[in-house]
Amino acid sequence: MRRACAHDAAVRMAADGDVRTLGAAITVALCGHWDHEPPCPLAPHHTSAERSGDEVTLRVLFAAEPESEADVRSRIETALSRAVFEGPDGVTTRWEFCGAQPSAVRRDELEHAERLMRTA
């Protein structure tokens, strides 16, 4: 049975860098492609990004089987540590990976986490 998990990460990216590419890179790592039919094969997930200058804080909320959780976290960090991604528009976005860590699901995320866990 899937359980809800969260993972926080930080990167530095140029002010004109598209933060959506970070989520796309994570989706490719977890699902094989940024544009796929639901559900996500390994872990239904949602990535949010907040920018402050050149610093971007990412939060990945996901649902995974307990035996897959470490693999999901590793894939997220591997995708971000590559520090480059070519988007569907052919534009290459670069960033500097600053680090990542597991995090607890917050109270305000519980409803979203429940939906992810129910995703078939």
Rank of each mutant, 00 (worst) to 15 (best):
Q101W: 11
A120W: 14
A100K: 01
V56W: 09
A79C: 09
F85H: 14
D18G: 07
A43V: 00
T119K: 07
A113G: 09
L58S: 05
T78S: 10
S48E: 15
R75M: 05
P38Y: 09
G23C: 05
F62S: 08
A6T: 03
D71C: 11
R107S: 13
E77H: 08
P44V: 00
S68G: 01
A15W: 07
M117P: 00
G87N: 14
G53T: 01
R115Y: 10
R12Q: 10
A9V: 01
H46I: 02
V105A: 08
V19P: 13
R73E: 08
R59I: 01
A25W: 06
V19H: 11
R107F: 12
P88Y: 13
S52F: 10
A25H: 07
M1N: 08
C5W: 12
H112V: 03
C5T: 04
D35Q: 15
L30M: 03
W95F: 06
A70L: 07
E67Y: 02
A24L: 13
T93C: 08
E111Y: 05
E111D: 12
S74V: 00
L61D: 03
M117Y: 04
A4Q: 03
E65K: 11
T78E: 12
G90K: 04
F62N: 02
H36R: 09
D89Y: 14
M1K: 09
A9Q: 04
T57R: 14
P102S: 13
A113L: 12
R82A: 10
L58N: 01
P44R: 03
E67N: 00
T21A: 13
T119F: 06
I26V: 15
W34V: 14
A120M: 11
D54Q: 13
A64W: 07
G23H: 06
C40H: 14
D54R: 11
R94D: 02
R115W: 12
L61N: 05
H33N: 04
D35R: 15
A10Q: 14
D16I: 04
T21M: 07
L80I: 02
C5F: 04
H45Q: 05
T21S: 10
R118C: 11
A6Q: 07
P88K: 13
E55T: 15
H45D: 05
R107Q: 07
C98D: 06
V72N: 01
V105C: 11
V105E: 05
E114P: 01
R51E: 11
D108W: 15
R20P: 00
G23R: 03
P38M: 12
R82T: 11
R20Q: 13
L42D: 02
A49G: 02
A25P: 03
C98Y: 03
D89K: 14
G90Y: 13
A70V: 04
Q101E: 14
H36I: 05
M117W: 08
P38D: 08
A4K: 01
F62Y: 15
E50M: 09
D108P: 05
E109T: 00
G99P: 03
G53S: 02
L61C: 07
E65Q: 07
S81C: 09
S52N: 10
H7C: 04
A10L: 12
M1V: 01
E114S: 14
L116Y: 09
A79N: 03
R73H: 05
R59N: 15
H112Y: 07
L42K: 09
S81E: 12
T57V: 08
R59S: 14
P39T: 02
R107N: 11
H33D: 14
R73N: 05
V56C: 12
T47Y: 03
A63L: 04
S103L: 09
